[in-house]
Design a protein around this nucleic acid. Structure first.
Length: 736
DNA sequence: CCTACTACGCTTTTT
DNA sequence: GCGTAGTAGG
């Protein structure tokens, strides 16, 4: 029977099908198993129809896996059951009904790059200088507004003659207008517009409320306000809402995740049943102890004690390298050793804080002939050649997509330069129509005279493709585009290794298109250009994670969430890198706590063996940084760690000699990287008033020496009590 | 209008 | 160190 393989708490979680349920699932406590069993139980024992179930997961891969497992368990196919990510779920709903709130149902989805380009156009049109308003910060600001369900109108209301906000409000408003006229939605809109649809059209909400009698949300600790609202709306009729999460694994605050969604679940649903899964089945005792040692330094957690029956296991290997190259060599050597002792490559993962760290690691793995797969970094769909190709497909599917049309209007070169594009843009704005419309009528526009024929030729080519769409398969269409535009020919003519790489990527893209067509046919759906573009827009890199291929996995700590590996290397454990420089200087303990949770996530990915490495020096953005060992590593109880003896410099491989040469290269530093002066002393004492850039004035409560720096507790007048590093946070004594 | 060169700024983390 | 934006010359 279904429940046999479960422990008591897991059983309880499966059987508690009615009403709101909060499952606090510690790392490795079998929550995926609980979720799949719960769904199986609903279907099998409770007679619930598959169509009445909505399960939200964090990645497409997790969704697919869950669905597969259920189908395997019950031996059926459940196409009516919705198991998908927030974003995919919303796309599906919007596809059906977004026309009810004035959008076109065949919308396209803009990624971050598209957003930036569109924002750039907005700034230009509003005469706002990019120097004073960097695109990335505006993008962040608008994105967080959307996460909080703040519309441009609401945003402008709360400006309160803050000049910066006033400008951003204008940009936000124009940005939304342009998105709409381009028939596009960005990531955040997917959720926002669904909530808007449900709010404005209660009958549509009613339909889905009625349909989804049982709702489950995984990784609930990482939901943001808009996602929370969405779930609340959907669940408010039957309240059969089961959320699963772990407050200790909340690592997406920067993306708007609101940890209070999980901390306050019982307040929002007073009759909620809370179930804790505290037995860890994944890690050895020592790894779990290390994880607990780190996470216990966080405040404001839900009470929870993770324990395990598993063996004690081996100590955690700690290693200090001279620099990042030596770190990579050590790791490569250890991997080879592990493999000699019977470990498989695919059972090993290298985790790091920032994508930039992967390069050196890759280099060393290649030198040692170790097969690896890289997740994240420059994603496949973000490569120039792939984005160009997609932009063609998007222009064909939706000529209102100004961003796509502008991207490829001169790729390959057709003699249509920036000046011409600028003119066309101005005319389009003036006439309030699509960029593409101006191209079609270029000859009628006197100011375009010289370029008119070129523009017209381009427009005709796109229209030509559009005409062919019904008669060609998607693969055929893609190939025709590559051929007729001369894109492939141009790359082939280059005769460089780089160009060949791009051609290979394009070939891979074609096989992905073929894959999409086949999948669609298998599911008895009509493959469409829109469907293809939608799928492309929503894939995460980690969705391509493949446990079959026997290779070491390289990924960020964020990407590793939800995965597990017998052997894990956590790399770059240095203050300033992990925890990140930003989280240290912000002076806000909460930022540091988020980093600590990330560390907790990393440690608990390991089942049997955990290595933690750091380097004394490291090149970051062309500067050499000397970082202290990560405070998180120091938080692990000494007796769990084993320090690896350092290799003698004489045993360095030739490569590392070259590497150390680099280190002696006198590279000019633009700005010293937070060096702490040798005899750094404080010019204030307890009871003095100090000033902080972000927190303002405060009174010093306590001073503790911490390495070369001091940890200072300050009671800020407006922001409350904070613990700060005196030097890093640039605390200044106030003159009275 | 295109290409080649220089200067600058930037990186956490991602659906 | 890298990629991109901005500038000058053809």
């Amino acid at each position: 029977m279904l429940l046999e393989q479960l422990n008591n708490m897991q059983k309880k979680a499966v059987l508690q099908t009615e009403g709101p349920v909060l499952i606090l699932a510690g790392a490795g406590s079998g929550k995926t198993r609980v979720l799949t069993h719960r769904i199986a139980y609903l279907l099998e024992e409770k007679g619930v129809y598959p169509s009445q179930i909505l399960a939200i997961t964090f990645t497409n891969k997790a969704a697919q896996e869950m669905k597969d497992r259920i189908e395997q368990q019950l031996g059926g196919i459940y196409n009516d059951m919705w198991v998908s990510t927030f974003h995919s779920t919303c796309v599906r709903i919007l596809h059906q009904d977004i026309d009810k709130i004035g959008y076109n149902r065949n919308f396209v989805i803009y990624d971050m790059d598209d957003q930036k380009r569109l924002l750039k156009d907005c700034l230009k049109q509003l005469n706002i200088n990019e120097k004073n308003f960097p695109l990335s910060s505006i993008q962040r600001e608008i994105s967080s507004a959307k996460d909080e369900l703040i519309s441009p109108i609401d945003y402008k209301k709360q400006v309160n003659d803050d000049f910066r906000k006033e400008k951003i409000g204008q940009v936000y408003e124009l940005y939304q207008k342009k998105l709409k006229s381009n028939n596009a939605l960005d990531f955040d809109d997917l959720i926002f517009k669904t909530v808007e649809l449900f709010t404005l059209r209660p009958e549509i909400l009613g339909f889905y409320q009625q349909r989804f009698r049982y709702i489950m949300v995984d990784e609930y600790q990482d939901t943001n306000t808009s996602q929370y609202q969405l779930i609340r709306l959907l669940a408010s009729k039957y309240e059969n809402l089961c959320v699963v999460g772990d407050d200790d694994q909340s690592i997406y605050k920067f993306r708007g995740a609101n940890i209070h969604n999980i901390l306050d679940f019982e307040k929002d649903f007073p009759n909620a049943v809370v179930i804790k899964l505290e037995q860890n089945y994944r890690c050895t005792q020592k790894i779990l102890d290390a994880a607990n040692g780190v996470i216990q330094n966080n405040r404001g957690r839900k009470a929870k004690t993770l324990w395990t029956d598993n063996a004690e296991g081996t100590s955690i290997q700690r290693y200090e390298a001279q620099n990042e190259y030596e770190e990579g060599e050590y790791i490569a050597n250890q991997i080879q050793k592990e493999v000699r002792e019977g470990r498989e490559y695919k059972d090993i993962a290298l985790l790091y804080r920032t994508n930039a760290q992967s390069r050196v690691l890759e280099e060393k793995l290649i030198q040692s002939n170790i097969p690896y797969r890289l997740y994240g970094g420059v994603r496949f769909y973000e490569r120039k050649e792939i984005k160009d190709l997609i932009a063609y497909l998007r222009s064909i599917a939706n000529p209102s997509d100004d961003i796509a049309v502008q991207r490829i209007i001169n790729v390959p070169k057709r003699g249509i330069g920036n000046v011409t594009v600028g003119k066309v843009m101005d005319i389009a704005i003036e006439q309030d129509c699509d960029f593409f419309d101006i191209l079609v009528e270029a000859e009628e526009n006197p100011s375009l005279q010289r370029a008119a024929s070129k523009l017209k030729t381009f427009a005709n080519m796109i229209i030509g493709f559009q005409v062919q769409v019904p008669h060609l398969s998607l693969v055929e269409l893609t190939e025709r585009v590559l051929k007729d535009t001369g894109y492939i020919a141009e790359l082939e003519a280059e005769q460089t290794e780089e160009a060949q790489g791009r051609i290979d990527n394009i070939k891979e893209m074609i096989s992905k298109v073929a894959e999409y067509e086949n999948n669609a046919k298998e599911n008895e759906e009509e493959p469409t250009l829109h469907g293809l573009l939608e799928e492309i827009a929503l894939v995460a890199d980690i969705d391509n994670y493949n446990e079959e291929s026997n290779a070491v996995s390289l990924m960020t700590l964020h990407s590793a969430k939800g995965l597990e590996f017998p052997c894990v290397f956590m790399t770059g454990l240095e203050d300033g890198l992990f925890p990140s420089y930003m989280s240290i200087v912000s002076g806000d303990e909460k930022d540091l706590e988020e980093e600590r949770r990330l560390c907790y996530v990393g440690i608990t990915r390991a089942k049997q063996r955990l290595y933690m490495t750091h380097a004394r020096s490291r090149m970051v953005r062309g500067n050499i940084q000397y970082n202290q060992v990560s405070r998180f590593l120091e938080e692990i109880p000494e007796e769990l760690l084993e320090e690896e003896k350092k290799e003698k410099p004489s045993s360095f491989s030739p490569m590392s000699k070259k590497a150390s040469l680099y280190s002696f290269n006198p590279i000019r530093r633009k700005r010293p990287v937070m060096p702490i002066p040798k005899n750094f002393t404080l010019d204030f004492k307890e009871g003095d008033f100090v000033v902080h850039k972000k927190f303002g004035k405060g009174i010093v409560k306590n001073i503790q020496p911490a390495g070369a720096d001091y940890e200072v507790t300050v009671d800020f007048l407006e922001k409350g009590t904070k613990k700060l590093m005196a030097h890093l946070s640039k605390l200044k004594k106030m003159k009275n």
